[in-house]
Amino acid sequence: MQFFLGIGAILFCIGLGIVLTKRQAVMWLVGIELMLNAANINMVVFSKLYDPTNQLFALFVMVIAVAEACIILALLLMLYKQHKHTNIDQLNELKH
């Protein structure tokens, strides 16, 4: 079981690393998805170990991840149409 927890932790770190280092919004999406999946693996492990109802959270997360991916992809498309790029650092019009 610790093996699967380790996979979850590694996946989470990779996702975090992507979010903290990459400039592209699409890569952020990938990183977030990875982190969500890391969490999912943890949920599954804990449901096996302690309480099977934890699987419910895993299902929730998958649904939310899908919905989120849909919305973010739509947003990214619109952003790309407007700016011809999806570089996060340059998207600062609201700040100024």
């Binding site: 979010v19 903290l20 280092t21 996060i88 650092d89 600062n92 700040k95």
Partner: peptide, 8 residues
């Protein structure tokens, strides 16, 4: 104003 720094 840089999101990644906030994340850090």
């Amino acid at each position: 104003g840089i999101l990644q720094e906030y994340a850090w």
